[in-house]
Amino acid sequence: MQHNLLILISLLIILSNLFLLGSSRTRAMLRGIAAQGVLLSILPFLFPMHKSGLVSIIVPAVLSITIKAILIPYFLHRVIQRVNTENALNPYIGYPVSVIIGLLISYGSFLFIEKLPFSYLSISPFTTSAAFASILIGMLIISTRRNVIAQIIGYLVFENAGFILGISISSTMPLFIEIGIMLDLLAGIFIMVVAVSRIHILFDSVGTQKLERLNK
């Protein structure tokens, strides 16, 4: 049962990644990332063997659902409302192509996960490979999207991957550090959101093409 649940959640995470890659609308992406946050908060309950005591299971779960599924999507929702973001910002790689790339990445991580040195640590290769695919997909979103909000969401995908890995292969972090990690993430996103509103005020756009004056 627990094994099946892990498979299901990994699968849903992969599908939500593909959804994020394929959706052009930032609001839709927001739903996707909030859904991912909910999925993540189930994970701590499925890896009880890594945890000592109920508190160390419940705290990460509660933190993840409040921060990743509620607070961060709420911040982003507010900023999307404020900046009225344009959806039609052509990404560097088109949506269908990036979904196909995402599919291949996911498949690839299924294939190769056993060859990586940490596969023996995890009881569920499914989860680990979903996490590994998320790392790459998050980076793909960050590097191919021209919309700063989409980039933030890519960063969140990437962070979620860290969370999944953390939950599924290691657990030795003291609780206060896990809380610190979550608060860092929250503060980071908050700062990014503030930056996005400033970008919007200054450039009247949240596209990154206007953020390309500094180079060399």
């Binding site: 962070e159 991957a161 860290g162 292969i169 030795t172 972090m173």
Partner: peptide, 14 residues
């Protein structure tokens, strides 16, 4: 974030 993943892998041993 990448460093975080590295950190987790190091800490995997407990």
């Amino acid at each position: 974030g990448l460093a975080f993943i590295g950190t987790i892998l190091v800490a995997a041993g407990g």
